[in-house]
Simulated assay, not measured.
Amino acid sequence: MPKIVDHVARRRQLTEALWRVVSRDGVDAVSVRNVAAEAGCSPGALRHYFPDQSDLVASALALVGDRFAARIATLDVPGTPVEIVQAYCEQMIPLDEARRIEAEVWFGFVIRARLDPALDALTHRVQRDLRGFLAQLLPYIGAPSAEVDRLHALIDGFTLHLLLYPDQLSTDTVRERLRAHLESIASV
Rank of each mutant, 00 (worst) to 15 (best):
R125N: 08
T123S: 08
L169C: 05
R114M: 10
V126L: 09
A118C: 01
D116C: 07
S170E: 03
R125F: 04
P166K: 11
I141W: 04
R114K: 15
V126R: 14
L164Q: 12
T159I: 10
I141V: 11
A153H: 05
D156P: 01
L137H: 04
R125Q: 11
F158W: 06
P139E: 13
G142A: 04
D167E: 15
A153I: 00
Q168C: 08
L122A: 12
L162Y: 04
Y140Q: 13
H161P: 00
H124Q: 14
E147F: 00
Q127C: 06
R114G: 12
V126Q: 14
G132R: 08
V148A: 03
S145M: 10
P139T: 06
R150A: 02
L119W: 03
D149N: 13
R114A: 12
Q136H: 11
R131M: 09
F133N: 06
R131C: 03
F133Q: 09
Q168E: 12
L134W: 11
S170F: 02
L115D: 15
D120F: 06
T123G: 07
L115Y: 14
L134N: 01
L164M: 12
G132K: 08
L137E: 10
I155E: 01
H124S: 12
L119R: 11
G132W: 09
H152W: 12
Q168G: 06
R125W: 04
Q136L: 09
G132D: 08
F158P: 00
A121R: 11
L130E: 10
L119V: 12
F158A: 00
L134Y: 15
G157Q: 05
